[in-house]
């Protein structure tokens, strides 16, 4: 009854004074070994309060360069933009994916960063075992991966599983949908991790409930840089805060870009297709 009283009188308009907003450059870029390409997405920040205002700034064309081994490569703008408002720049012709420097100029804004692409990673075997509920949905699964993990220092891994069929959460079969994500720090040995259905986050691993008649799944397993591990986990934690009914301290999203938000990171990935038992 108390709770009824309390929550009946909740939710009113904001009474916090907004800050003067000024858009800033956002750069999200991946140098991918395995696919052997560099993708750079250029975007701008939005006002958190008035982000749907009609005078949203248009992002002008940018000049995007990669410097590798003293050579500068100009990235080509992709004419088709997948995400509203963003511009994509791509480089696919041969380049030594090792230590790279990124430079982005967009109007008067300049951003730059560096990355080191991790060495190759080859998956030898992936084990998946799932749990099905009475409604026929996979609700959790256990992943085990045997790959050529190096011994010694800590290294960081990303796991992505996609399904090319509709799911309860995403009913459009047009493109593979990510149903599970995980970020791990390993010190040695094979990787084993439990994934649970959406809403309950494990150790920075989560998945959606999905249909059992899904057929073949696409597994992308990547070796990533620590800064990308920190970046992705911070995002997951921040999403968790926004979903939480309990007010929590805020989480910062780190950036390695100078002059912009975002990240420039190297990834070594291996992709295979499996059938879930």
């Amino acid at each position: 009854m108390l709770l009824a009283f309390v929550f009946a009188s909740c939710h009113q308009d904001v009474s916090v004074d907004p800050f003067p907003f000024e858009g800033r450059l956002v750069v999200e870029s991946y140098a991918v070994r395995g696919g052997d390409y560099i993708m750079v997405r250029v975007d701008k920040t939005r006002d958190p309060i008035y982000k749907y205002s009609p005078d949203r700034p248009v992002i002008p064309d940018a000049s995007v360069r990669i410097i590798a081994n003293g050579t500068t490569y100009l990235l080509r703008k992709v004419p088709y933009s997948y995400h509203f408002g963003s511009q994509y720049y791509l480089y696919t012709r041969g380049m030594a994916l090792d230590s790279l420097r990124l430079s982005v100029d967009c109007q008067s804004a300049h951003a730059e960063s560096e990355c080191s692409v991790p060495p190759d990673l080859t998956i030898r075997r992936v084990g998946l075992s799932g749990n099905v509920n009475s409604a026929g949905l996979y609700t959790s699964f256990t992943l085990s991966v045997d790959a050529d993990f190096p011994a010694g220092d800590s290294y960081y891994l990303a796991f992505i599983m996609k399904v090319p069929v509709p799911t309860p959460a995403y009913p459009y079969p047009l493109s593979p949908v990510r149903v599970a994500t995980g970020y791990f720090r390993q010190t040695s040995g094979a990787l084993t991790a439990n994934f649970e259905f959406e809403g309950i986050q494990g150790k920075f691993a989560s998945c959606r409930a999905y249909a059992t008649k899904s057929g073949i799944y696409q597994i992308v397993f990547s070796r990533i840089e620590k800064k990308y591990y920190d970046f992705a986990i911070a995002m997951m934690v921040q999403y968790g805060e926004l979903d939480s009914i309990i007010p929590t301290e805020t989480t910062d999203i780190p950036t390695d870009m100078r002059g912009a938000y975002g990240i420039f990171t190297g990834i070594s990935s291996d992709t295979l297709r499996v059938t879930l038992p």
């Binding site: 408002g85 990303a158 990510r178 926004l242 301290e249």
Partner: peptide, 23 residues
């Protein structure tokens, strides 16, 4: 603490958990 900037991050492999982060 209130956010001052909002921006999109898709992450490698495509967005899963959402499409914006806050600064």
């Amino acid at each position: 603490t209130v956010p001052r900037q909002e921006y999109t991050m898709l992450l490698y492999g495509g967005s899963y958990t959402g499409d914006y982060v806050l600064d």
